[in-house]
């Protein structure tokens, strides 16, 4: 079931008491990190092998991050904790979902995000066509949908006619940080 908005149903049951749509949810930390690497074209999809102490220095799937059962020991633990992966010190029947400023500091400032943004920006800059076409392709790649007129206009305004690498990277970081990538439709 999709969490997509429907004006008519919303008018009748805005609280979604009768479950006309799925409640909007967020991706889990692992899937979100994998998605960032996948859309920037950097994901190493190799199966098997030793775990990674620091998934932020790795391009492998988050599944291969090493986690500690005695507290946050590895860099991977700290990253996962920031995005609500439960500590493996006790049982967790369910994940809590938190939305805290530090998550956005990660998106805005972390070397991991800026590296993904640079890669995605470079990919966009090399796609054929003008800015509008490149942006349209990125929307399909990241969100699986057509870019809207409003979004295309914003992109055009922000990027200008001949954006350089830094602008592409900056724009790519915004697309990667947008809620839509973290959201389950």
């Amino acid at each position: 079931m999709s969490s997509r908005y429907d004006a008519e149903k919303f008018a009748k049951d805005g609280e979604n008491r009768w479950l006309w749509r799925m409640h909007p949810r967020k991706l889990e930390a692992e899937a979100w990190r994998d998605a960032l690497l996948a859309v920037s074209g950097e994901l190493d999809g190799a199966v098997g092998g030793p775990p990674e102490d620091d998934v932020l220095a790795s391009r492998r799937r988050t599944l291969y991050g090493r986690i500690s059962r005695t507290g946050d020991v590895f860099a991977t633990d700290a990253f996962l904790r920031l995005f609500d992966f439960p500590a493996a010190v006790s049982t967790a029947e369910q994940r809590v979902t938190s939305t805290v400023p530090q998550q956005y500091l990660f998106m805005l400032n972390s070397p991991f995000m800026t590296a993904r943004a640079a890669a995605l920006g470079e990919w966009m800059s090399k796609r054929p066509g003008g800015v509008a076409e490149k942006v349209g392709e990125a929307y399909w790649r990241l969100y699986g949908r057509e870019v809207s007129a409003a979004e295309r206009a914003l992109a055009g305004e922000w990027l200008g006619n001949e954006p350089g690498a830094a602008q592409w990277a900056g724009y790519a970081q915004v697309l990667l940080s947008a809620h839509e990538l973290m959201q389950i439709p």
Binding site: P24, R25, K26, T99, Q102, Y104, Q183
Partner: peptide
């Protein structure tokens, strides 16, 4: 998506992250 609590919280958190810097 209309009235997604997560998204409202996200916008707030993002703005606060910026100010926190």
């Amino acid at each position: 998506v209309e009235r997604d609590q997560n998204l409202e919280a996200a916008i707030q958190a993002m703005e606060m992250a910026y100010r926190m810097q």
